[in-house]
Design a protein around this nucleic acid. Structure first.
Lengths: 224, 224, 224, 224
DNA sequence: CATGAATGAGCGTTCATTCAT
DNA sequence: GATGAATGAACGCTCATTCAT
């Protein structure tokens, strides 16, 4: 129930709506992007051959170069589209009127649901992007910065409204929260530490736990 | 003062002690590992050519193959040595008698100090290892699992002793804490969100903030 | 004045007359040939993509294949048309009644004026044709042979009439004369050895010098 | 007899002397250059695959890249070495004390003998070099300029000594002479206009004819 | 041990040509 | 005729790895 507003949120990260309205040219282009996402997610950017992408997309080799200048541009395009959509949703959450705690909950849910719905996208965004040396390029850094600023805004607004402690640096809090969420995903991808189960119910529990952890802290309250 | 126990801790992560006791053979071998660490850290694993490593080490590049079967094995060796040392220190912290809060503080300080002292090591451990598809191999997963279990133990012991809340899944808490620390480092490496300054004092502050965040939580306490 | 007969000569090398009488189909075809000539002249045959030609011609590049079997055929066609026109004019000069000296002057003027008026055509004829391995094909060789024979005829007729020395092999003389003219052009194209200036007056002077050189020889006459 | 001084001249254009004194490393490098010269001469630069060169040299593909950065560099190296040697000999002729007429004779003989002895070298120098767009690079232009200046010097000195007519621009004369020689070679390469026979005796005759043509001129002398 | 020459599989990219619309 | 999407063979180059000395 309290997650009602998140359903559309998570859906906005999905592409179908936008895709279908595009013309034939973009349809083929999108085929390539989707295929590349799958291939990058499963073999990694470096392990993915352009021919793999073409085969996965069911098109001829050379056609990839009709739509993209080179392999790099494919990754860049995926990043720009997906990351842009993702940060857009986060911006929306940050700009809302709900309490800071709810915003953090929505953010956590967004991340975990996104991985549940589109594991390939998330794998590529989280793992592959940063592998390219391109990650250190100003453009990419700026893109990551956008997310950080958006999340930091949630924290800062919460502090100003008195909901959140003011003695903690908002930037550091934001980094910690993002890092915590990222590791949740990583651990699932790698299966390093399998969470109880992988149902959506598990995600709900994870979300609740993380938010409760960040809001209430670890320390046991001495009950008097 | 309270960091006194950490000095040795941080030093144990450094390699010199172990290195010097080895023979001449190992000296050259270590040269290669050190050179490889620097090269991997600056160009990434995929961007590093074996010849780069050899040049950095000041040896002929055919010689690399006397000491290592192939390029992968160099990375594996670095990982095994550094990660092993690191996890060893974490194990030590986890096994200590100090309060859970102090253990977490030591862990945070260990990570941040390690990056301050040996940025190349940390970059390779954090960024390069997982880029290889080898990261998904059982061996590597198990190595990461060791760290997670060690940290989880800190949490669990704290819960059992009543220091920490019992209603939070220890594994999730551990993931969140590790993720938070990792992101602190990442943000510094990328310069995405520069922390106030980069002195050790800044690290101290970061450590305190993170620990305070995890222990006390974000929520403002209504003071009655 | 003495160049009066050359004006029409040089103009015959130009294409407009012939082009305009052709139908619409040929108009588009000619567009392609003209565009190709410009592109070949500036980037070279190998450096010219079919798409470059199409873009320069302002048409879709698939259309090129409606008019020409392939890229080679475009060059072949340009060669056949331009070279044919050029050799035709040379034939005309060779068949004339004017003295051999005047014929050589007209030939030299034809070549230099042609380059001045249509540098692209000349560049393609002189530089690009022979680069294709096709140049060694019998057809092309025969075309070049036609020019040589025409020029050789000028020399031979002059020898028979007593105007020119008979002790020099007419073929060799003809090769030398053609080579001299070709190098005049080459040096201008490359700017290797800039001639005094590039006005038509300079061409006149060049023509006079070359003819004087070939007729009178280099040796200083001992004046008694 | 009068050609005695030319024997060493022509030999200086050959490489063996220098080659044999080089070490093993250069031997392999030279193998590649020689093989490349043959392949370039027969298939043209663009038609020559790196694998062709490697096969012709009897070495592994990758080894080519051990000695040369890329295919271009091979051609550049051949050009630099051969052209340099050639221009050096021309410089020597130009600097001599012999009469201008003899210098021109030596130059003509040098060119024709070089082609007779090393047709591949000459083909590559004359035909392949200029095909690369690199030919328009300042370096190459300068190299060609060196030859032109050296030949122009022969003419100018002859003019100053009173041996040659002073009313002809030395640069133009030089261009004409070089062009005449180049076309002699071209015609033989292409077989466009087969000279009587291809023996060295034929070369001698060609040399004599060309020199006689340039010195005495075409015009029949009215014998009084 | 040490060197670096030698090997060759592998991959990204280009571009002439074909073809469906 | 006209378009440009689609195809795929071809080739330059890289670089991990081997091997002779």
């Amino acid at each position: 129930m309290s997650r009602a507003p998140l359903a559309p949120v998570a859906d906005d990260v999905s592409p179908e709506g936008a895709t279908e309205t595009r013309g034939a040219r973009s349809a083929k282009r999108q085929q390539i992007l989707d295929a590349a996402t799958r291939v990058f997610a499963s073999r990694g950017y470096h392990g993915a051959r352009v021919s793999d992408i073409a085969r996965e997309a069911g098109i001829a080799y050379g056609l990839v170069y009709h739509y993209f200048r080179n392999k790099d541009e494919i990754l860049d395009t995926i990043f720009a589209e997906r990351w842009g959509a993702f940060v857009g949703v986060v911006d929306g959450i940050a700009a809302g009127e709900q309490p800071a705690a709810e915003k953090l909950r929505q953010l956590a849910a967004l991340v975990l649901f996104a991985y549940r719905r589109r594991p390939d996208w998330v794998k590529v965004l989280v793992f592959e992007i940063q592998r390219t040396s391109r990650f250190s390029e100003p453009e990419q850094i700026e893109a990551v910065g956008r997310l950080f600023r958006s999340v930091a805004r949630i924290v800062r607004v919460g502090q100003e409204s008195g909901e959140l402690r003011r003695d903690l640096d908002a930037n550091l809090v934001c980094l910690a929260f993002i890092g915590a969420l990222e590791t949740m995903i990583t651990s699932q991808v790698l299966g390093v530490m399998r969470l109880p189960d992988e149902s959506q119910a598990a995600d709900d529990r994870t979300v609740r736990t993380v938010v409760s952890l960040f809001l209430g802290g670890l320390a046991a309250r001495s009950e008097t």
